[in-house]
Nucleic acid binder design. Structure first.
Lengths: 128, 128
DNA sequence: AAACCATATTCAATACCATGAATGTGATTA
DNA sequence: TAATCACATTCATGGTATTGAATATGGTTT
């Protein structure tokens, strides 16, 4: 990810570049949905796959964006890789935004699906 | 501004589109700088021009993005057009982000410049 | 009405992001 | 070590945002 900040003359705006960089990462519905899933702690990729309905490669792409921005962190455990947010304060940003847009705290109700990972197995879901 | 959200299959992420739309507007250093100037109330365009060092057309472009997103509002008074933010809660988002990026509340110290508008004339500045 | 002021809009070129498809990787079981 | 599992990466294409340059607009003064 490369900045294209070549402000015409003076760069009075340079101090804002760091914030812009993070805002850019948040400018994507799938990534916001992923962060929403990670609100209650770490989850594996198959979990997100099952809950969001996207294909694995697509989710992995979005995870890599979040990871490179150092918003999330991964941890391997056997076959599965678990993701978690590094700095919980990102939710302060997201919550403040939701207060403006007037969206319910959890519009995204967990569907009755699950994957084979330990986390999902503890749920009621039934994989097809 | 048109959304390009054509999620592969399911659109579990659609509820996030509204937030994404606003985040997109915040994904720009000049626009963040403008919002920062508007923290203490309304200001005319020439004011921003003087304080940011960008050319008038450029600032006007960014203002139009903020205006179309209904983040700011304009008011005409004689020659000048004054802008103000519509919903102050946008600063909750910006402040939350600054807490993460660790930027000082007002990195952007007002330079000793001014334009001919009534607002600027009350300042100490001297236009070249 | 004409000249002038502050500000807005349009246009075109370029840079950047999104995303599907194909393929690669590293840990694990047999 | 070969097959397999969960996940990551690369590549190519189309779409969207950025921004400089030129020009338009609408209120104001004379």
């Amino acid at each position: 990810m490369v900045l294209n900040m070549v402000s015409s003359k003076v760069s009075e705006t340079r101090p804002f570049d760091v914030q812009v960089q993070i805002f850019k990462v948040l400018t994507h519905p799938a990534r916001l949905a992923i962060l929403d899933i990670l609100r209650d702690g770490e989850h594996c990729v198959c979990h997100m796959e099952a809950h969001l309905g996207f294909r694995q490669a697509y989710i992995s792409q979005q995870l890599s964006v979040l990871r490179e921005a150092e918003i999330i962190q991964d941890r391997r455990d056997g076959w599965n890789i678990y993701y978690r947010v590094i700095d919980d304060r990102i939710y302060e940003v997201l919550d403040a935004m939701r207060r403006i847009t007037g969206q319910p705290k959890s519009e995204l109700k967990k569907p009755n699906v699950s994957c084979a990972c330990p986390t999902c197995s503890t749920h009621v879901g039934k994989a097809s």
